[in-house]
Design a protein around this nucleic acid. Structure first.
Lengths: 200, 200
DNA sequence: AGGTGTGAAAATTTTCACAGCA
DNA sequence: TGCTGTGAAAATTTTCACACCT
């Protein structure tokens, strides 16, 4: 499997390719590097992990690179996802434009507050969190996005895992634990802000 | 300066310490490791970078470790911050509980839409983005949080830097560029979600 | 000329084993 | 005994130089 850092950078590259797809058909490692704040040889090394055929003096063909990357990162099909916790952050995510049409099918939202569920205006089906288990199974949801307060995050994660979710994106500041076969990625805003300050 | 990974982990540790401060006075490297999903020697190595005096057989004294970490990471004083872009995400961040009382002073919000500014109900002062430069200078804001759409992110970043901000937390999917002396940390939700899927 | 691919060197990060301390 | 601190080994990641392609 790809090294973690390489996979992370390739995801970024993939995102950039989607954005510049309309532009001219080729992009060089140097251009990508400057967009991402790395060096050209890092980009080449990362991409070389994909066993791509060489392209000569014009750089990478955007369409081809994009499709190879999509395959390598398993991004070529949409993933069925759900958001748990429809507070301010959760409902912002529910309608987050970038998820839409970007290979992520947000097919359900959950909240513990029944009143909130009735009030929410969105295209996406919303359920009480008590039905989490059942809906995840029925809809074959593969990815869970956690946006609940930190004191219920672990419980939600456990339920998601039990119901068959294979990946979790955790927006709560809680340090949740999942079995090693489940992929977990933390987006802890406070830690991130602390990191910024610590590097100043 | 601390290695990047170490600094990131120390920020996490600091966050955990804040959470468990009420509990018993000591915590071991093993306990921290299990909460963070690393190993005990990684924790010890990280902490040893801080030149702490040894504590013997009970582990680290939470209060003392917390204070040493606070100093090392420069988290012992509040940082004046602002949020640019008060869409769904931005306004969620504006009232994000965890920032409050956690060493971050969100002192201003900005949006380009005057109507939105008038509608927003918050304790924090909000301004049209045209006053960004001026307000950042007047209030000596040190950290900027970007939550605008990706097509205006670079412009906002440039203004923030010109106005004297030293660190930026970027929530937009744009790959923005800043001078090397300015700290930039990207929280790109779509990249994160892609990364989760790629590791499944 | 202007780009990629890659083996080898350098640098960094993680892991380990164990001395030392209360 | 139960934990930390740390030098040294191992593993990984980044950097570099340059062959090679069109």
């Amino acid at each position: 499997m790809l090294p973690t850092n390489t996979a992370e950078r390739l995801c970024k590259i993939y995102g950039i390719l989607q954005m510049i797809k309309k532009d001219s058909g080729y992009v060089s490692s140097k251009e990508l590097a400057s967009m991402m704040g790395t060096t050209d040889f890092t980009i080449r090394k990362d991409i070389s992990a994909l066993n791509l055929v060489s392209f000569g003096r014009r750089g990478y063909h955007i369409g081809e690179l994009s499709s190879v990357l999509g395959k390598a990162l398993q991004l070529s099909r949409p993933y069925r996802s759900c958001i748990v916790g429809l507070g301010r952050l959760g409902s912002a995510l529910l309608d987050y434009e970038s998820f839409r049409g970007d290979g992520f099918d947000i097919v359900a939202g959950f909240d513990s507050n029944i009143n909130k569920i009735e009030r929410i205006r969105t295209q996406i089906a919303v359920y009480p969190v008590s039905e989490l288990d059942q809906v995840v199974k029925n809809k074959s949801i593969e990815v869970g996005i956690i946006a609940v307060p930190h004191n219920s995050a672990q419980e939600v994660a456990t339920t998601l895992v039990k119901s068959g979710v294979k990946g979790i994106l955790n927006f709560s500041p809680a340090q949740i634990k999942v079995p090693s076969e489940v992929v977990l990625y933390n987006m802890d805003f406070t830690s991130a802000l602390r990191f910024v300050v610590s590097q100043i």
